[in-house]
Design a protein around this nucleic acid. Sequence first.
RNA 1: GGGCGCUUAGCUCAGUUGGCUAGAGCAUCUCGUUUACACCGAGAGGGUCGGGGGUUCGAGUCCCUCAGCGCCCACCA
Length: 853
Amino acid sequence: MNLPKVYEPEKYESDIYALWEKGDVFKPENRFGNKGTFSMVMPPPNANAPLHVGHCLFVTVEDIVTRYARMQGKAALWLPGADHAGFETWVVYEKRLEKEGKSRFDYSREELYQQVWDFVADNKETFFQQFRALGASCDWSRFTFTLDEKVVRTAFNTFKKLWDDGLIYRGERLVNYCTKHRTGFADIEVAYEDATTPLYYMQYGPFVVATTRPETKFGDTAVAVHPDDERYKDMVGKTVTVEGVNGPFEIMVIADEMVDMSFGTGVLKITPAHSFDDWEAAQRHNLPAVRVIDHDGTLNERAGRFRGMTVLEARKAIVAALKEKNMLIKVDEHYQNRMGKCYKCGTIIEPMLMEQWFVDMDRLAKPAIKALEEKRIAFHPESKRKQLIEYLQNLRDWNVSRQIAWGIPIPAFQNVDDADDWIYDERVDQEIIEVDGKTYHRDPDVFDTWFSSGQWPFVTTNYPDGDDFKKFYPTNLMETASDILYPWVSRMIMLGLYVTDEVPFKDVYLHGLVLGPDGQKMSKSKGNVVNPVEQLEKFGADALRLGLITNAVAGANQPYTDVKATGGRNFCNKLWNIARYCEEKIGDTKDLNREPNPQTMADHWILWKLQQSMQAICDALDTYRFGEAWDTVYHLVWDDFADWYIEASKAELNLSVLAYGLETILKLVHPFAPFVTETIWQTLAWEEGSFLATSQWPTPPKGSADEADAFEQLIGVVQETRALMVELNARGRTLYYKDAPLINDNAELIKRLAKVAAVKEVTDGQGVRLTQTRQQVWLDVDNDTLQRYGSLLQERLQETRSRIAQLEGRLGNNSYVDHAPKVLVEQSREQLADAQAALETISAQAQKYGITL
RNA sequence: GGGCGCUUAGCUCAGUUGGCUAGAGCAUCUCGUUUACACCGAGAGGGUCGGGGGUUCGAGUCCCUCAGCGCCCACCA
């Protein structure tokens, strides 16, 4: 025997993976004639962090899809990559510097870039070794990093195209700004949090205004009231004098619909440079914007004696000053507010007036919305489509400038003598360039990371002239996490349509979060983080994959406990032992014919089961119902093949069907658990030099439906016999039958499956009658057990009567008989006949033994 | 404030167009050391599918409503 008793994944997995790589198994090729292509680009993981369980889930899902497509004969491309993750990585790296007592300001931009590059290179390496350990069948030769030359080039080209089309502009706008990281953000990078902040009512010239931010009053350029507000009608359009903490100043009163009359006093101070609402109001009323807060988060010279204080310090000091001057009317300490915070460090985001590059989202979003409405992309789950459309409809222009060193430099230069003169130039390795005798200075900023990763599907396939682009674009599937639907998926659709005129993918499958064992989002502080490397070592890659895919449903979060991987491991071991059994039976049989030649009922039955299951598995996989597909495979292998077919084969052995069955289940399991199946395949060595990974997905076999049905009936007899034996404590009894060719022809098989002492034919019933099969079968018992049989019959009788009543009711209802499909009505009639026959049997048995029911 | 989703056995969750005598895994209980497997085998118990109403011959599935939970988006100072 070649296979040891227990499957030990660590002994085989790395060798198997090496074998696949050596065999070029992951190259997209049509291996069985032209069966078309399948393509998917891996969502590039951030190259800055260790592997987490979420990665394992997406690797599993994507690998299943790819292996399935590959086995169907498609040229299956799964293209791997890694993301420099601009800001994300930057944060990680800054933390490291901080630990060493250094800061980004100790280095030049070029030095920093190089340091981060080295840091990321190290990380990438371990990371993708772990992906290999999980069995990821992606084509590593096509690996793309978001800072690769071709990505940078494409980002430049797209920027140029946007520039030429007037879709990108440089403008002074309010930007979400983190004063700790000193960079601006896109709207989507701001995390809002509920907070209770004091609401200060302060004297403001003739008004009282309510504000949470008294420190911004030095940037006020107007006071606003509602146009319908009778209280202040006379004031609108006038200029009023306000006594401030730094002395008096004059300010205009405007009327604007934005003001909520019922909030506070109905008077709102307008600070265009530090509030999004106010900025918009300022645009409507042509108000100037005055900066008060500097990039380091402190107040500037406009604040007079408060200059140099941080926002929070200044707020305190100003409130104290107002109090002193009796200008603080009251304070609402319980005001419920929402505060924008930096999603990385939690620093309160300051809306800051800055010059940045903005992308006109209105014009980019429109074609995307159209494509979504026309269903040119399918979503799993479908509900995400509507959410995405609504998101796209409400987009503001996208700030793509980031004030960090780690990223793709923006290829734009500014005339040193004319601040409004910007030119596009790709010589980003130089700080100063000369063009037409004029001197230009490079924009020090880099692109938002989503600007480059938003172009991922066509960048990686080498738009516009690459062979991969021609062959594999648009890609078939985008599989990614639900929580990056907005920042990533939406941008790929917009930029894909803009650059290539085609949607970048036809299907979007979104997986949910893998939660901790407690059902909460994993976090270090909660201590519920599952370490996937530990799980891998403990259970093996297949087991972890199976654990993650069990019950997986699109878009749904799932808690992870190692009970799941345990189940996966047990399955692998089961499969392993199935193979051991088959190998032992088949042995060294020369010229083994794996074309199934069904002889017995069980042969026909297992072929029929395989056929049914294959249909269900394909249906589920084709619609990305992975949990369901796996459930079907699992029960086919364990219940049908192992528990019934193999057990039956111990009585009647048919090598061709046994071998065919094993080969087929190995193929069906392979996408889910590639290592154990390939290991078995290689050990069996039925085909010299072949890989299960590149074998052809099985086609449904043919079997006799009648024979299969006969075996189903036999299963019924066996199951009821077993149950009766357990319930009546009648082990080791003889089974009698009458007028039952099915039993007669399969006495040995039944004896074995039902674990009875003997199966004998008689002219009349010898003991307790099986009531739930159509066969006439009895189990012999002694007198003591008849007592128990009575109560058992009682239960059966009640069940059967209520069943009959239910079915009679249904069939007595003309509406049902008229409206329901004929098949169903016919089925009901059969069920009723069966139930009535069972009732007769029960009564007859009761009468025979004098049991009163 | 808007949107999306969830509520089904002790636990974690399936249940595609309405046809279900409502399933799985784990857990529980009973039996079993049968020569592929104790990471096993056989069997059992356990649910008025969150509450209420409606449509329908038929509702876990569709509609309305109430309650609880979760997530996302939004500029109320």
